[in-house]
Design a protein around this nucleic acid. Structure first.
Lengths: 130, 130
DNA sequence: CTTAAAGTCAGACATGTTGTCTGAGATGCC
DNA sequence: GGCATCTCAGACAACATGTCTGACTTTAAG
C-alpha cells in the first residue's frame, strides 16, 4: 500500500484520463473525436493543452518517438480514488478512514453485492492480521 | 437516507465550519481569534466575507436579532462527507459506492476498531434487509 | 521540389474562484 | 458627543480553468 500522492485533475482533464483508461496509447487526433462531438478547430489545441498539464502533473506519459505523440495514463482510477479519499479523510475525519466507511455502510447506498465484497475483504484482512 | 445536495466549500470556508462545529452559535468577533492567531485588521472582514458566502450557499444560518449577528452551521460534517463521497462515486465509479468501500477496506488503511464497526453495521443491515 | 496536411509549441484570453482587505455608514455605550 | 463595534458593499491580486490563435516543423503526395 503506497502512500497516495495528492492528485488533482480538473473535469476536462478527467475526461481525457477516462478516454485513456478506456483505450490506452492514443494520439491527440484519436482523442479529440471521443471527447468533442462538434469538430471545431480549437479542440485539438485544447486537448493538447490539457495533455500538457496532465503530463506536468505526472498523470499521463508521452511517447515522443512517433511524429504524433502517443499518450497513456500514468495514474489509474484507483490512484485518483485513493487520493480523493485521503484528502477527504484528512479534511473531515482527522485523517481516519473509519468514518468514511461507516458512513457508506450505514448510508444504505450499498448493493448486496457490494456488502458481500466488503465482508469477503474483511475476512481476508482477518486472516492476514489476526 | 436523504439525497445529498452538492455542497462545495473552500478551505477557508471549511475552517469556519469547523470552528462552528466545535462551538455553535458564534459571532464574528468570537470566530476570528480561533481562526487567525495574528490579529490583523482585515481578518474580521475576511471572516465576514466567508460567512456571507457560506450563508449564500446555505451552509450557515445567521441570527440577525442581535446587533452582532450570531452564526451557526447549517450543514454537518456528515453532510459534507456524503456530498464528497457522492461526487467521487459519480465521477470515478459510475455512481456506485461499492468500489469506494472496497478500496478502503482492501487498502489496509482501517484500524481494527474501524473494521469492527463496519462488521457491526453490516450485521445490522443484514437484519433489516434479509 | 513544392505544397498541403498534420503535428508541436508557446502563449494569449475571458471567465470564474479564492482569500484578502478598505472604506462608508449604522448602532449602541460611557 | 465621541468612541468602539458592527454590517455592508465592493474592490483587489492571484490563481485556476477551458478555450483558442499563430508560428513553425515535419511528413508524405502530387
Amino acid at each position: 500500500m503506497t502512500h497516495p500522492r495528492k492528485i488533482e485533475v480538473t473535469d476536462a482533464e478527467l475526461a481525457i484520463l477516462q478516454a485513456l483508461w478506456e483505450r490506452p496509447h492514443q494520439a491527440i487526433a484519436s482523442l479529440v473525436p471521443s471527447l468533442y462531438s462538434r469538430g471545431g478547430k480549437g479542440e485539438y489545441a485544447t486537448v493538447q493543452t490539457l495533455l500538457m498539464r496532465l503530463e506536468k502533473k505526472g498523470c499521463v506519459v508521452r511517447d515522443r518517438s512517433q511524429r504524433a505523440h502517443v499518450f497513456a495514463a500514468a495514474v489509474q482510477r484507483e490512484d485518483l480514488i485513493a487520493s480523493h479519499l485521503t484528502t477527504l479523510a484528512e479534511k473531515l475525519c482527522g485523517g481516519s478512514f473509519g468514518p468514511l466507511v461507516s458512513h457508506l455502510v450505514r448510508g444504505g447506498a450499498l448493493k448486496e453485492e457490494d456488502r458481500q465484497a466488503i465482508r469477503e475483504a474483511l475476512s481476508e484482512l482477518e486472516d492476514d492480521t489476526p
